[in-house]
Write a protein that binds this DNA or RNA. Structure first.
Lengths: 144, 144
DNA sequence: ATAATTGCAAACACTTTGCACCTGT
DNA sequence: ACAGGTGCAAAGTGTTTGCAATTAT
């Protein structure tokens, strides 16, 4: 039984989407924003195509997905490009409620958080999907 | 100008929904679960009614809302009854990905987390909407 | 040539809204 | 009597699916 690697075609739609995601790696974007961006570039792409490509990137481990902040109205899922080597499953993420900027919390304090939660609250922390919200450095200043 | 308190009628639908929420204060339930529960009790309530009452409780400050864990497929919004005196806006919440159990993290360590995040990452933490996921004490044991 | 990619229209799941009817006070 | 609550049907939103047409290799 031959194991055959599925080939992949290069298309300008995908290239455009990927560019946009990479340019915005430091924050989160929605499927709709991608669509709007592409349209503005006169390279309109169907929403279906966008969702399918996002799904693909996700499976390959190059995309983080964020559901809207709990309690938020009218939110939608947003996405962020990440290198798979980033080990995003091992640290928490801080997301700015204002601008969508995401900080990877990969510092030593992570261990303390995890062990406090385990020792005092009995929980085995799962970083994947756990997001802390707040105002980032930039947005703190500007009176909302 | 008279300020008039809007009156409120007691109905068995609302009483049933509230009972169910209160009985399950330690965890999170969805609108659909409430619907199913009421039907099982032979006290069927329309989904519209459920959503409208949940909205009301939320406005009154007696309900926490949780969007599905980031990245989770097919999740829906879930709700938890809380006394408004609980000050849920001042601590984080730990939610079990398996059983939905929620732990209020109102311990001293909260301050340390907030100050680390502020000092090292520049973020002003916003507890409202920030949820950490993991496996609770009970679910840790049982091989998933 | 042929497998991957795309667009369209329809289906989906969950939630919200408008409106006429019903119910608690 | 009448404000408040409810159910129904329809609309809404964001996302997914089936399928036939198109495109990269």
């Amino acid at each position: 039984m031959e194991k055959r690697v599925k080939q992949e075609y290069k298309t300008s739609s995908r290239a455009g989407i990927l560019d946009y995601l990479k340019q915005n790696r430091q924050r989160t974007v929605s499927a709709g924003e991608i669509h709007t961006h592409m349209k503005a570039q006169n390279r309109q792409v169907n929403m279906t195509t966008i969702y399918r490509y996002l799904e693909k990137l996700e499976v390959e481990g190059n995309l983080m997905q964020y559901t809207p902040q709990s309690g938020e109205k009218n939110g939608c899922v947003t996405y962020q490009y990440v290198d798979s080597k980033h080990k995003c499953g091992e640290h928490l993420h801080l997301k700015c409620v204002q601008c969508g900027f995401v900080e990877h919390m990969d510092c030593d304090f992570m261990k303390e958080i995890a062990s406090h939660i385990s020792a005092e609250h009995g929980f085995a922390l799962e970083c994947k999907g756990s997001v802390l919200y707040g105002l980032c450095k930039n947005c703190r200043g500007q009176g909302r």
